[in-house]
């Protein structure tokens, strides 16, 4: 949770893991909630997501990905490279009641990136990773 090199988000979805898995691995469905892509559910498949370029971040609008792991309907892992990023996105699906808890871990951010560094200096110590996270958690409305 407090690892500055990883972004972790989770979401309860009122649908069984098989349905959530479809939305994660069907190229058209994936395009509807994430970005246009040429994804295929095959380990080793290389694909791209296309979005708007952000020149300030040296990002040309193409995310270069590769399927690293595929374990339906439990785990899906992509390499995620674009701009200055060389990262890994991991989706984990856990049945919860009648639905699914979907965990996202986006790992491999550079904690020494100048912007992040400056922010840490500003806020000091464990403030960002511990206190701020707890504070923002109190703002997140609980999911069923």
């Amino acid at each position: 949770m407090s690892d500055p090199s990883t972004v972790s988000v989770d979401q309860y979805l009122p649908h069984p893991p098989t349905t959530v898995w479809r939305a994660l691995t069907d190229s058209d469905l994936l395009g509807r909630w994430l970005m246009p892509n040429d994804f295929a559910p095959v380990v080793g498949h290389r694909f791209t997501f296309r979005t708007d370029p952000r020149p300030g971040q040296e990002f040309d609008g193409t995310v270069h990905c590769e399927v690293l792991d595929l374990d339906p309907p439990r785990l899906l892992r992509w390499a995620w490279r674009g701009g200055r990023l060389d990262t890994v996105v991991t989706w984990t699906l856990v049945a919860e009641g009648k639905g699914t808890r979907l965990f996202l871990d986006h790992a491999g951010f550079d904690p020494d990136d100048p912007v992040q560094q400056r922010t840490r200096d500003l806020l000091g110590g464990g403030w960002r990773s511990h206190v701020l996270r707890r504070l923002t958690e109190t703002l997140t409305s609980p999911t069923p």
Partner: peptide, 12 residues
């Protein structure tokens, strides 16, 4: 956005 897409999908 994913949650919204799922609303339109039939559960298997």
């Amino acid at each position: 956005a994913l949650r919204d897409v799922l609303e339109d999908l039939p559960d298997e």
